[in-house]
Amino acid sequence: MPSGTPLQVGRRIAATRHSRRMTQADLARAAFISLATVKAIERGARAPSDTTLDSIAAALTVDPTHLVTGYTGTERRVHAVLPELSAVLAAYDVPLDPPSRSAEELRAAVTEAVSWRLAAQYARVAQHIAPLLQDSLYHLHSSPAPDAARLVVAAARTADAVACKYGAHDLSARLIDLMRWAAEQSDDALLSASVAYVRTETFFVARAHRAGLRALESAVDMAPQPVCARSGAARGALHMRAAVIAGRAGEASAADTHLSHARALGDEVREDIYGGTAFGPDSVRIHEVSVAVSLGGEYVSRALDVAREWKPSLAIPAERRSGFYIELARAQLWSGLAGDAFESLKVARSVAPQHTREHPWAKEDTATLRRLKRADADSLTNFAEWIGAI
C-alpha cells in the first residue's frame, strides 16, 4: 500500500518543485490543475488522486513513486493498457481510420515517448502508447517510407518497455515481431540492427542465452561497417549486448571479445542516444559491470573495480543508470558487502523507482539481504515491502 501522510507527500512535491525552480503557479499550469489544488496538496490539506498525482509527476518529470512511496497507480495503468496494445497488434496489417495528427506531430509525439522510456516513466508511456502505435502503423500503411517504419519501431519499442518490465512476455514477443516486420519494410540496415538489439530480450526471458548470442553475432555480421557515428554505435551496441548474453551463456572468451569490440567502437563516438539506444564509453562501462555479474564467480571483482573508479553521470538515461546500481548491488552482495549492496539498491530506487521495483534481481537481492539482516532492520523492511520482496 502507498505510504506517507498527505503532509509528507505534499512536502515531497514541494521539494521536487523547488528543485525544478518552479513556482506553484508553474506547476499548476504544467500539470493542468488549479493553483488552489496545488496549494492544498503541498500543505497536506488534500491527498492527490491517482490522476492528479500522475499529472503532477509528469509536470515535474519524475516517476510518481518519487512522490508517494509504494504508489501502485503505474502498475494499474500499465496493466489496463495491455489489452489495447494487444488489439493494435492483432490488426497491425489492417489499415484503419486515419489518425488526427500529421506526420510531423506523430514524429514529435514518438520522440517524446522515447524520452519517457529512457527515463523509466512508465505511467506516461502507458497513458499514450496504444494510440501512438496505432497512428504509427497507419502512417506506415499510407506512406511505406523508411521514416514511417522507424516511427513504428520506436513506438513498438516504447510499448515493449512496459510490456516486458511488467511481465507481459508474450505481448513483448509480439511487439518485437512487429518491429522486425516494420524494419523489413524499410530496407534500413541500421534499423534492423536496432531491432536485433531489442530482440535479445526474448532470449533473456527464455534463458536461451546461447541462441541469443548466435543471433546477435549474425546481426553484427549483417550490420553496416562503422563508417560514421550512427553505424559505429549500431554495431557497438550489438557487441555490447552480445557480451552480456555471452556472459549469461558462460562463454567468458566470447564475452571478453565482444566487450573489447564494444569498447573500441565506444571510444570513437560521444555518449548519446543512437536509434533509441544509449551508446558510448559510459554505456560500455555499465555493460562491463553487467558482463562481470553475468559471468559470476571470479569475474565479480571486475564489477567492483569499475564502480570504485567510475559512476554513471546524470547524462546517462535513468533506466540504464538504475540498472547499473542494481547489478552493482548483486556484485556487492556476492562479495559479502551486504551494506554496500543495500545502499546501491537505494540509489537505483532514487534514480528510477519503477524500473527498480519491477527488476527481478532487485527483488531477489532485497529478499536475500532481509534474510541476512545485515542492514538497518527498519529501513530494509520498508524497502522490502516497497519492492514486493515480502
Rank of each mutant, 00 (worst) to 15 (best):
residue 197 Y to K: 12
residue 198 V to T: 12
residue 198 V to A: 07
residue 199 R to Y: 08
residue 200 T to I: 11
residue 200 T to C: 10
residue 201 E to Y: 14
residue 202 T to I: 11
residue 205 V to C: 08
residue 206 A to D: 12
residue 207 R to A: 15
residue 208 A to M: 14
residue 208 A to F: 05
residue 209 H to Y: 14
residue 211 A to W: 02
residue 213 L to A: 05
residue 213 L to T: 03
residue 213 L to F: 06
residue 214 R to V: 15
residue 214 R to P: 04
residue 216 L to Y: 01
residue 216 L to N: 01
residue 217 E to N: 13
residue 219 A to W: 01
residue 219 A to T: 04
residue 219 A to G: 07
residue 219 A to C: 14
residue 221 D to W: 09
residue 222 M to K: 11
residue 223 A to Q: 05
residue 224 P to K: 04
residue 225 Q to N: 15
residue 225 Q to D: 13
residue 225 Q to S: 10
residue 226 P to C: 09
residue 227 V to E: 15
residue 228 C to Y: 13
residue 228 C to F: 15
residue 229 A to K: 08
residue 230 R to Y: 11
residue 235 R to Y: 06
residue 236 G to F: 04
residue 238 L to V: 10
residue 239 H to S: 08
residue 241 R to D: 04
residue 242 A to E: 03
residue 244 V to H: 03
residue 244 V to W: 01
residue 244 V to Y: 00
residue 244 V to T: 06
residue 245 I to T: 02
residue 245 I to L: 04
residue 246 A to E: 04
residue 247 G to R: 02
residue 248 R to S: 02
residue 248 R to C: 07
residue 249 A to F: 02
residue 249 A to H: 01
residue 251 E to K: 09
residue 252 A to P: 01
residue 254 A to S: 13
residue 254 A to C: 11
residue 255 A to S: 07
residue 257 T to P: 03
residue 257 T to K: 05
residue 258 H to I: 02
residue 258 H to D: 01
residue 259 L to F: 03
residue 259 L to Y: 00
residue 259 L to S: 01
residue 259 L to M: 11
residue 263 R to H: 15
residue 264 A to I: 10
residue 265 L to I: 10
residue 265 L to R: 00
residue 266 G to E: 03
residue 266 G to V: 03
residue 268 E to P: 04
residue 268 E to R: 11
residue 269 V to R: 02
residue 269 V to W: 03
residue 271 E to K: 10
residue 272 D to L: 13
residue 272 D to A: 14
residue 274 Y to S: 03
residue 274 Y to G: 01
residue 274 Y to I: 06
residue 274 Y to C: 04
residue 275 G to R: 02
residue 276 G to E: 02
residue 278 A to K: 02
residue 280 G to D: 06
residue 281 P to S: 12
residue 282 D to S: 14
residue 284 V to S: 06
residue 286 I to S: 07
residue 286 I to M: 12
residue 287 H to T: 13
residue 287 H to M: 11
residue 289 V to T: 08
residue 290 S to I: 11
residue 290 S to E: 14
residue 292 A to C: 12
residue 292 A to R: 00
residue 293 V to T: 06
residue 294 S to N: 09
residue 294 S to L: 07
